[in-house]
């Protein structure tokens, strides 16, 4: 790793480095919690932690707008919804006797690990087409303009998708009238 940083680092850069790896470590631990914990409610808390960590990563990447949207949508809405789900289905998911993972644990692990190995082998050696930022970074204003200009069509479509999902969710979850 040292050859990556052959120049002397300023204190601000040190702060960035340490916070990135700290947050990354926390996120990985939280993600592991999500998939391994027996108590599904604790898993949901882990997911909240991952979402918060991702928001912090976005902040580091100068995507403030996205960071706040992330907190609002994930921590505010998604995790809350999931917590609801957990409570509503508690009887089916709780109890020490209920197995939490299915029969394909080993093979899944091998497959995922091989996919992981393939990608992690290639990522460091790939040359990415990166540029050094010179002008203004994209901010909320840039995004807003883009949404209403170049991306107006996808934007409208995603709005309709959300609306349809909303209606669909209501229809599905509603109790059938007797």
């Amino acid at each position: 790793m040292t050859e990556l940083f052959n120049t002397a680092l300023t204190p601000w850069e040190w702060t960035q480095l340490i916070s990135f790896y700290g947050i990354a470590a926390l996120m990985i631990v939280a993600a592991l919690m999500v998939v391994t914990l027996r108590n599904i409610f604790h898993s949901a808390l882990g997911l909240a932690a991952v979402a918060l960590g991702a928001a912090a990563i976005y902040l580091m990447l100068d995507a403030e707008f996205l960071a706040f949207v992330q907190i609002l949508v994930y921590v505010g809405a998604v995790v809350t919804l999931i917590a609801f789900m957990v409570m509503l289905t508690q009887r089916a998911s709780h109890g020490k006797l209920v197995r939490q993972s299915n029969d394909q644990k080993t093979i899944s692990f091998i497959v995922v690990l091989s996919l992981f190995a393939l990608l992690i082998w290639k990522i460091p050696t790939t040359v990415w087409n990166t540029t050094v930022s010179t002008g203004n970074l994209a901010d909320a204003k840039t995004l807003g303009t883009a949404f209403l200009k170049e991306y107006i069509m996808p934007f409208e479509v995603i709005s309709i998708v959300l609306l349809v999902a909303l209606i669909g969710a209501i229809v599905l979850a509603r109790r059938e009238p007797k």
């Binding site: 996919l115 393939l118 290639k122």
Partner: peptide, 20 residues
């Protein structure tokens, strides 16, 4: 469903492998 997804992931891994 998870069996199917597993097969899907195997396929994905193979595609990645061939691309590499």
């Amino acid at each position: 469903i998870q069996n199917y997804i597993l097969l899907l992931v195997v396929g994905l891994a193979l595609i990645v492998w061939f691309k590499i």
